[in-house]
Amino acid sequence: MTVTMEDVRRALDPDEVDYAEASRLGPEAMPHLMALVQQNDPSISPKAAYLAGVIESGESEAVVAAAAASDDARVRIAAAEAAAMLAPAAASRVLDALVLDSDAGVQKLALRSVSAGLSPDLRDKVREVSERAPSEALREIAGEALRRLQ
């Protein structure tokens, strides 16, 4: 089955997206998801970035990484969420910058995506947040992430 942009939009346009259902589009959706992330449109790019993480594909990391580089925090937040579904090496690369993001919401989601098996470099950055973040709540979330890493 050929997946069209129309198919992808039909899956992602609902106000409440069913990502399990949308993931049935499979890896053929990836080029369209990349195009939607690159639109940098807050109404659709975060959904595309997240779905790229849900769908297991060799192209998932590239789409999620593109979202992680967005100048819109809402798109970076989706990248941070999607990173939790990537393989450990890919997740480490995506989360590397996001755990020290200037936006507290991005940091929160990036820290929540940290799990065992991620890179030692990332562990150092999580430790830094656990010690130096201005928000006590964020320091606690980083502390929990650090415990998952050890």
Partner: peptide, 28 residues
Amino acid sequence: IRSTNPPSNGCAAFPAGRPSCVVTSAAS
């Protein structure tokens, strides 16, 4: 709110006795 995890435009799930919903910043 700014966004939901996972991303949507809104969500109307609420606990019993506390009718509520959220609407995100990218909503129509």
